[in-house]
Structures are given as structure tokens and as C-alpha cells.
Design a protein around this nucleic acid. Sequence first.
DNA 1: TTGACACATTCCCATATGGGTATATATTGT
DNA 2: ACAATATATACCCATATGGGAATGTGTCAA
Lengths: 107, 107
Amino acid sequence: MFNAVAEPRRREILDLLMEGERPVGDIVERLELGQPQVSKHLKVLREVGLVDAREDGRMRVYRLNGRGLKPIHDWVSNYERTWSERFDALDVVLDELKDKEARDERP
Amino acid sequence: MFNAVAEPRRREILDLLMEGERPVGDIVERLELGQPQVSKHLKVLREVGLVDAREDGRMRVYRLNGRGLKPIHDWVSNYERTWSERFDALDVVLDELKDKEARDERP
DNA sequence: TTGACACATTCCCATATGGGTATATATTGT
DNA sequence: ACAATATATACCCATATGGGAATGTGTCAA
């Protein structure tokens, strides 16, 4: 899944979908990439759960599923303290509290 | 650079280096991977600035440079709000403050 | 039903990449 | 100087992957 995001065009697709759901055609236009290529990238993103598709007539509307990026966020966050000196003991505690709250609210 | 981190073994190397600097031999042992392979992975990580090397006699001691992961962290953080409902307006303000402080301290 | 449209899938090709093996380079110890 | 050690590099091979072109599938409109 790190792999899915390692592709520049796929990151562009995700960035685009952050604006809102989009049919394939729109993505093809914006990325200036062939339609089959976009479909293939979307397939990869679908397989790792980073996007969902909704059928609307003869078009498929793709929607971002940002939660799929949480594993990456979690992994990278472990390294945050190596560059952010502000990420000291207090910050760690606060972040853990924030995480705990989030878990309690949506178990 | 996303690419460098997309490789599982390279992430293992980074995770290992989080414990502290290590010569190549130690990494080879821990990863149970060939020495040339480890050297090649380290080369990739060096080229994207995720690790630094220090010469110590006939061995090269590699050290983590976590700051190189900041771009990834920044990119993924844009998506955090899509899965964390606690990431509301107040949190955004607080995080921006934290960023600002960090910039002021290390410009 | 037929044709146009939106998208997915297939096939082909060029390139990149990771592992394995062998070898080169540099440094230490004797 | 020589052998051993630590690491880097070169070469080979199998596989994965992205783009391009062609084709398949399902849907709407007339």
C-alpha cells in the first residue's frame, strides 16, 4: 500500500479526489493521461482501499477513502520526533491522549 | 523518495536505524539479507537523504536522518482529517501553531 | 435495435528493480 | 607485503510496472 502511493500519478489522483468525488473522465482530463492508464491506477487504489467507486449511470464516480492512509501516517509519525524538536515528551502525551479519545469515540 | 520508503526491506532498515547508528554488517545480520543487497538499499536511502554514512575504520556506520521523511509526513497529514474526526478546526489551529513555533526556532 | 458514450480489460513493449553471485576497493593486523 | 575483514560495485536474471493501442462491456438516447 505504500507502493500504491509511491506512484506520482496515483498521488495526483488522490490529491484530485480530495476536492471531491470525480468520474474517471474528469480525472483523465486533469491528469492529461490516457483513460486506460487512469483506470488501471484507480484499480490499484481500489485494491488497497484508498478509493471507493460508486456507479452513476454509465459512469463510475470515484471517492477518496483517506483512512487507508492511516498506516502510512502511523509509520511516519514514529519518525517525527527525529526532526521536530517540539515533539518532546509533552507532545507525545498529548498525541496519545488524542489517539485515545479518537478510539473511544469510534471503536 | 516515496519510492525509497515503498520497499519493505528499506523500511526495515530505517526502523532498525531508529535504535541508533549501525554498521552495514549489523544490518545484514538483523535483516537476514545478503550484504550486497543491504548495501544497495543503503545506497538508495542515501541518495534520497534518509540516511547518512560515517566512516569508522574499515566499516561504514549508517545513521538515520528522519527529517527526510517530513515531505511524506506533510503529504499524508493533508489527508488526516478525512479519517480523524477529532481533527477538527481547533486541532488544525493548534497544529499550525506548533508548526509555526518549530519554524521560528529552527529557521 | 442501433449507435454513441464511459469505462474496464487485454496485450505488447520498454524500463526499473530486487535478489544472487562474483569481484573490486579500502583498511586493519601480522 | 600479505591475509583477512568490511563494504561497494558490476553483472546477470526474473519479475513487476507504467504507458500505448486495441478491444470488450455495460448504459443511455433516439
